[in-house]
Every structure is written in C-alpha cells, then in structure tokens.
Amino acid sequence: MKKYLTLAKISWSNGLVYRLNFVMWRVRLVLSLMTAYFLWAAVFGQHQELFGYTRDKMLAYIFISWVIQSLVLSSRSIDLAGIINSGDLSNILTKPLSNLKYWFFRDIADKTLNLLFSVGELAFLFLILRPEIAVPAPGNLGMLAILVLPLATLLYYFINYLFGLLGFWTPQVWAPRFLLFVILQFVAGSLFPLDVLPVGLQNVLNWTPFPYLIYFPTQIFLGRTGNIGMVGGIGLTLVWTVIFYLIVKLVWKKGILVYSAEGR
C-alpha cells in the first residue's frame, strides 16, 4: 500500500510542476460553472418555478453538481490510452505494480489537488453568486461522504479506465472518448438535473450507470431523491460499479495479450 501512497505523492508534485496549466484548468471550470449558472438564471427570468424547480433550487443544483463533478470526473487515468499506444505502459508492467491501482491512486492525487484548489474558488463563487443552498440532513450528508460519492468515483474510474483500455486495439481513442464526454454532459446531469426530462426518458436513464455519477449524488445533497429513492439509487450504483469492474478485468486480460510494447 505504501508504494501507491508514494505514487500519489509524486503524482502531486508532478501536477504542481505545470502550475499555469493547472490554474488555467481551474479557471475553465469556474467559467463553465458561471456559464451554466447565468444560463439558468436567464431561463428562469421572471418565472418563479419551471420544470418543478424553483429558481433557487435550480441554481443550488448547478452549484452542487459542479462541486461533485470536480471530485468525480477529475482524473489522470485519461492518459492510459496514450501510454498504451506509446509503449510506456511497459514501465508499469515490468514493475511489481497493479495497473488498475496505479491509475486509481494517480486519480486520487489529481482529485485531492483539485478539491484543495476548489475550496478557495467555492468561497469566492459563494460570495458573488450567493446561491441559496439549504444545509442537507446529516443522514444524507453521511451517506454521501461514506457511500455515494466513493461509489460514484469508483464507477466513473472504471468507465474511464475501460475507455483507456481501447488503446490496446486502436490509437484512435479520442473519438470514443469525446462521445463519452458528450453523453456525460447530457445524461449524467452536469448541465441540468435529469428530472426536467420527460418521465419516460428518465425511467430509461435510471437503469443506465450515468445518472449515478453526478445527478444522483447531487439530489441526495439537495434532499430530492425522487422516484429512484436513496436505497434504489445506491443499489444500482453498486451493481453498475461491479459490472464495470468485471468488464474492466476481462478487457484487460484480452488487451494484455495483444499488447506489443511498441515505440521501438
């Protein structure tokens, strides 16, 4: 275990080498929040309620989902495909390391770094946007911290890792990854809460893994788990996490057989 903690530490120092890069990344995130925030503010205009949301509830959703995104979606494992293609995966394979753990801990390092920075931004954004966010019930908060967010993080990690493994078969991994990003924007709940969609579509989406990455955790925070329910949502997150874990294991086993350690 100590080796992975040291890895996270060195990954941290490595991340800090490109300070400007990192700061620009954070600026981008802040801007994207402001865009979504002002867009929704404009949509509401004079209306007090739309799609079953009050103005304040909607803006709180945008705000909280943004915080959850920066935890769940920030990752280093996005480099995995590139490293398979360049042959640098060999550096991990020839060492007593598990590739799955390697990237997980690099992701953790990335996430903590991002979280640390977002604390300051949060205070700043809170001051200028002044969203009205009710403090969630302690039970919900506890569930989020110990179960829902860790599971969402793990689920996204496996999905992301699976896309990285495509690198074993093709160097063209950006197209499928871009598709994933677009899908996430629409069906994970990062642009809008999913319960503004038609009920039929919602029912379908509830069976996919995507709502459990951002939408579901955000709703727990806001205390509106809706028709999935807390237990149902956690159960489905767990099921999808296990399914993706098994797929990842299987695909890795196949991929490693065709790995050709290229680059020479």
Binding site: K3, T6, L7, I10, N14, V17, K95, P96, L97
Partner: peptide, 17 residues
C-alpha cells in the same frame, strides 16, 4: 519522471520494490 528530479523517481522505485 520527466518533470521531477531523478531522486524522486528513485524514492518511488524504492517503495515499489
């Protein structure tokens, strides 16, 4: 690690092995 002093990679390898 390209962006860090070699010493850091050595320490990481010490832990890995």
């Amino acid at each position: 690690w390209w962006d860090l002093p070699a010493q850091e990679s050595f320490i990481l390898n010490k832990e890995i092995y």
